[in-house]
């Protein structure tokens, strides 16, 4: 069952002025990044604007807004995508409540649309 594993367990990390966490693609196959949407991320109830998020995958870190144009780059299904949000004074060792909403549109089916919600309280490394 893939639908309940959106947030990769124990992946919250305190970065300089940011928090990051890992996501799994809840689907049976890899998908082009252009069909992936991060619909929302909240940390301790604070919703982070999508244009302030970045993602790290395939060895590169880019603004979340770049994903829509990446029709030829894939999220391999066993890889963890890291998304990072600006956060003042992130504290290693402290637990944060993280909620992520993700949608995707498998490109071989015009009307197929799946969505997933991940919620996890994780201690930042």
């Amino acid at each position: 069952m893939l639908a309940d594993v959106l947030i990769d367990p124990d992946t919250l990390k305190a970065r300089p002025n940011a928090l990051s966490l890992g996501l799994r693609l809840p689907w049976y196959q890899s998908l082009p990044l252009s069909v992936i949407r991060i619909d929302g991320l909240s940390i301790d109830g604070v919703e982070i604007d999508a244009d302030r998020l970045s993602f790290s995958l395939n060895g590169r870190t880019r603004p979340l807004g770049d994903m829509a144009d990446l029709t030829g780059e894939y999220w391999f299904l066993t890889d963890t995508m890291e998304i990072a949000a600006p956060w003042s004074d992130p504290a290693p060792g402290r637990a944060y409540e993280c909620v992520v909403r993700l949608s995707f549109f498998p490109p071989y089916a015009e009307t197929l649309h799946r969505s997933a919600i991940g919620q996890s309280r994780m201690r930042a490394a």
């Binding site: 069909v35 549109f105 015009e110």
Partner: peptide, 12 residues
């Protein structure tokens, strides 16, 4: 193999 006609949602 797949028939990825909608590499951008809504655009064939």
């Amino acid at each position: 193999i797949t028939a990825d006609r909608f590499l951008r949602p809504g655009q064939a």
